[in-house]
């Protein structure tokens, strides 16, 4: 038996919105630690690795580890039937061919449940090595979304250049070119508005804006995003999943293969 109850159900709605445009289907791997999902997009350019920690749920029961194969578009549609303030419970029997979602209104005067068929998925997992990145950039997630959206006007790719002075995002195309420079915040009152660069070595890398724009769908989960880069390795974009009190419930991480010279 697997059962997980999340009082702040909107977090699960936001998690689904952050992955459904990038992935068609994926397995939720449920264990005592929590619910994990790892999957690549169909072209193997981007990977999603997400974690919802068991202690982030108000109730969490997982008698034995199970893998729930899910059509993500279907799950997203069902979660849209939950109100933003609903409590969401996910339930699956061992060896079941279906998963149940229960939505309770805060006053418990409306309870709905939806059963969805599970899929048999042949999932292959990639081993992601622990990496000490040359640069880690933290910035407001809304700022990153805006940069990706604005530079998409000019081209398909963004060059991210991180030095001790700050970060520069550049794009060029038929109509011209554009640059956005962010300086490190000297002093900010609010931590979530800060731009912080932790740099061991300067890095310049090129990435597809199409994929970065998919990643920014996770911005509603977190006020800050971090970009971790080293020369010639995939970029890691991380949004932490925090509840209203700011406690960590997990993360959504995206990995994106760089554009490289042949």
């Amino acid at each position: 038996m697997f059962e997980a109850r999340l009082v702040e159900g909107s977090l699960l709605k936001k998690v689904m919105e952050s992955i459904k445009d990038l992935l068609n289907e994926a397995s939720w791997d449920c264990s005592g630690n929590g619910m994990c999902l790892q999957a690549m997009d169909s072209s193997h350019v981007a990977l999603v690795s997400l974690m919802l920690k068991s202690d982030g749920f108000e109730n969490y029961r997982c008698d034995r580890s199970i893998s729930l194969g899910i059509n993500l578009a279907s799950m997203s549609k069902i979660l849209k039937c939950a109100s933003n303030d609903d409590i969401i419970t996910i339930r699956a029997e061992d060896d079941a061919d279906a998963i149940t979602f229960m939505f309770e209104s805060p006053k418990q005067d409306r309870v709905s449940d939806y059963e969805m068929k599970l899929m048999n998925l042949d999932t292959e997992h990639l081993g992601i090595p622990d990496t000490e990145y040359a640069c880690v950039i933290k910035m407001p997630s809304g700022e990153f979304s805006r940069i990706c959206r604005d530079l998409s006007v000019l081209g398909d790719s963004v060059i991210i250049c991180c030095t001790k002075d700050g970060v520069r995002f550049s794009a060029k195309g038929d109509l011209g070119n554009g640059n956005i420079k962010l300086a490190q915040s000297a002093n900010v009152d609010k931590e979530e508005e800060a731009v912080v660069v932790d740099m061991r070595e300067a890095v310049t890398l090129t990435f597809s804006l199409r994929y970065l724009n998919f990643f920014t769908k996770a911005a509603p989960l977190s006020s800050q995003v971090s970009l971790s880069m080293s020369e010639d390795v995939p970029l890691m974009v991380e949004y932490k999943i925090n509840d209203k009190e700011g406690d960590s419930k997990g993360y959504v991480r995206y990995y994106l293969a760089p554009k490289i010279e042949d």
Partner: peptide
């Protein structure tokens, strides 16, 4: 001209 690489050239199958 830069080309898009894939993740499978960086990460091994687990």
């Amino acid at each position: 001209v830069k080309n898009q690489s894939t993740l499978t050239s960086f990460f091994k199958k687990a």
